[in-house]
C-alpha cells in the first residue's frame, strides 16, 4: 500500500501556509483540516457564506442557521464572519482565496478537471465547484489514483464533462504527487513502496519525472 487516505490528507496539509484562506471540498478534502499544525493559522471559507469555519458542534450546540456547504451543522470561531452568497463568490471569483482542495472523477494532463457529472446518471449539479476552480489561486485535487474498477483517473483527456479547463495545479493520489505547469504533467513525489513502473502502469496521462 502506498499512501493511505489519512496520509494523502496529511500530505495535502503540507501545501497550506500560515495565513492562508482555504476552501475545502466535500468528502476526503474536509479531512485535511485535521492535519494543520497548531502553530499555523489557516482560515476556512464555506461558500454558503462564512469565513472562519469551526468544528462540528456538540449535541447541545447545534444551530439550524449555521451549516457548511455540505449542509452539515458546524460552529463559529471568534474570528468568524458571515456574508451573503454574492459576496462569498465575489471573494472566490476575485482570487482572494489562496487554495482550494477538491475531489475529482478525472484530471487531464493539461489540468482539465471533471468532477460534477456522469452522463446517463442523475446529475445533481456543480454547486460552487466551477466558480471555485475558476477563481481560487491554486487548486489541488485529492483523489484515488484509479477508479473502483481500476480504470485510470489521470488521463490524456477527460471524457466526462468538465468542471473547468486547465484549472488544476496539483494532484495528490495514493501513489504520488503531480504538478501541472504550462499544460504539462510532472511527477514530483512518489509515495512509499510505489515504483515508477507501477505508476506508469496505472496512469493513462503522459507525465515527466
Amino acid at each position: 500500500m502506498a499512501w493511505t487516505r489519512d496520509q494523502m490528507c496529511e500530505r495535502a496539509a503540507l501545501e497550506l501556509e500560515d495565513g492562508f484562506y482555504v476552501n475545502l471540498g466535500i468528502g476526503m478534502p474536509t479531512l485535511v483540516a485535521n492535519y494543520i499544525p497548531e502553530s499555523m493559522t489557516v482560515t476556512f471559507q464555506s461558500e454558503n457564506g462564512m469565513l472562519g469555519m469551526g468544528p462540528f458542534p456538540l449535541d447541545n450546540e447545534v444551530d439550524a442557521d449555521l451549516i457548511n456547504a455540505g449542509k452539515q451543522t458546524i460552529t463559529e470561531l471568534p474570528e468568524s464572519v458571515y456574508f451573503d452568497s454574492a459576496t462569498s463568490f465575489a471573494m472566490i471569483r476575485g482570487g482572494h482565496i489562496d487554495l482550494s482542495i477538491l475531489g475529482a472523477l478525472q484530471v487531464a494532463q493539461n489540468g482539465d478537471l471533471a468532477n460534477w457529472m456522469i452522463p446517463g446518471k442523475m446529475v445533481k449539479g456543480m454547486g460552487g465547484a466551477m466558480d471555485l476552480v475558476a477563481g481560487v489561486r491554486r487548486v489541488i485535487v485529492l483523489m484515488d489514483h484509479n477508479a473502483k474498477d481500476g480504470s485510470p483517473k489521470l488521463l490524456k483527456e477527460c471524457d466526462l464533462p468538465l468542471t473547468g479547463a486547465g484549472v488544476v495545479d496539483t494532484v495528490i493520489t495514493d501513489l504520488g504527487l503531480f504538478e501541472i505547469k504550462g499544460g504539462q504533467l510532472y511527477l514530483s513525489e512518489l509515495a512509499p513502496n510505489t515504483s515508477l513502473d507501477e505508476i506508469r502502469d496505472r496512469t493513462e496521462a503522459e507525465f515527466v519525472q
Partner: peptide
Amino acid sequence: PQGTLAERCRAGGAGIPAFYTKTGVGTV
C-alpha cells in the same frame, strides 16, 4: 454555477443586464 446564480441576482437587482466571468469557460 452557484456563484453565477448569486451574481446573476445581484446584477439583476443592481441594474446590470449582464456580466463576464471565468466560471464555466470550457464547460457545457
